[in-house]
Simulated scan of single mutants.
Amino acid sequence: MKRKKHTSADDEAQIDMTPMLDIVFIMLIFFIVTTSFVKEKGLDVNRPDNNNPQTNQPSKSLSIRIDAQGVITMGGREVDIRRVVANAQTFLAENNTDSAAIQADEDTEHGIVVEVMNQVKIAGIEKVSVLVKS
């Protein structure tokens, strides 16, 4: 009978991976349980509700133009800054809207634009937007 000769491959020790996997899973559970979630601070955004039915009628808004010399035009007519409130109220009586769009020239003084915005708000229009050249 021939004897088997032991090779070095048979004598190698094998490493049991089960305890290491147990430790990894325990650490994973520990980190999941101890993690705290912090709500980041930021600005609240008012998004429109999706529950509101969309109307097919476009919303008509008050259009105001201010040129570089400060001349205010509403509805195709030139208007004095003191008459913006009256004209805006007339527009509100004729149209069901809650918004106004002010288109000012880039050379217009800021004070005139702000005064027109204030006059429109006094007239009862809460949503005022300023159009810019893009």
Rank of each mutant, 00 (worst) to 15 (best):
Q119G: 05
P19I: 11
N56T: 11
Q89N: 10
I125S: 06
A101F: 01
S61D: 04
H6T: 13
S59D: 14
I81R: 02
Q89H: 09
G111F: 05
S36N: 12
M27T: 04
I81K: 11
R82M: 12
R77Y: 03
T108C: 07
M17F: 11
D67H: 05
D16S: 11
Q103D: 01
K39N: 00
P53S: 13
V24P: 00
N52P: 01
D49I: 09
K60C: 00
T7F: 05
D107P: 00
K41G: 10
I29Y: 00
R65S: 03
T35Q: 08
D44R: 15
T90N: 10
S129D: 03
V85D: 06
I29H: 00
T55Q: 10
K133F: 13
P19D: 13
G42I: 09
P53G: 10
V132A: 05
E12W: 04
K41D: 08
E40H: 07
V24E: 01
D16L: 12
F25E: 00
T97G: 09
K39Q: 12
E12Q: 09
F37K: 10
I15N: 10
M27S: 02
V79W: 03
L62K: 03
K2L: 09
M20G: 06
T35K: 10
D107W: 03
G42Y: 13
I122V: 15
D11W: 02
E126I: 02
I26G: 01
V85E: 15
L43K: 14
M17C: 02
K41A: 14
N50L: 15
D16W: 08
Q89A: 10
S61E: 09
N56V: 05
S59K: 14
R83L: 11
D98T: 15
S134A: 14
E115I: 02
N46G: 11
I15H: 10
A88S: 15
H110I: 07
S59V: 13
S59Q: 15
Q103W: 02
V85K: 14
N87L: 02
K121I: 04
I125F: 02
F37R: 06
I15C: 06
D16H: 11
I125E: 08
P48S: 15
D80E: 10
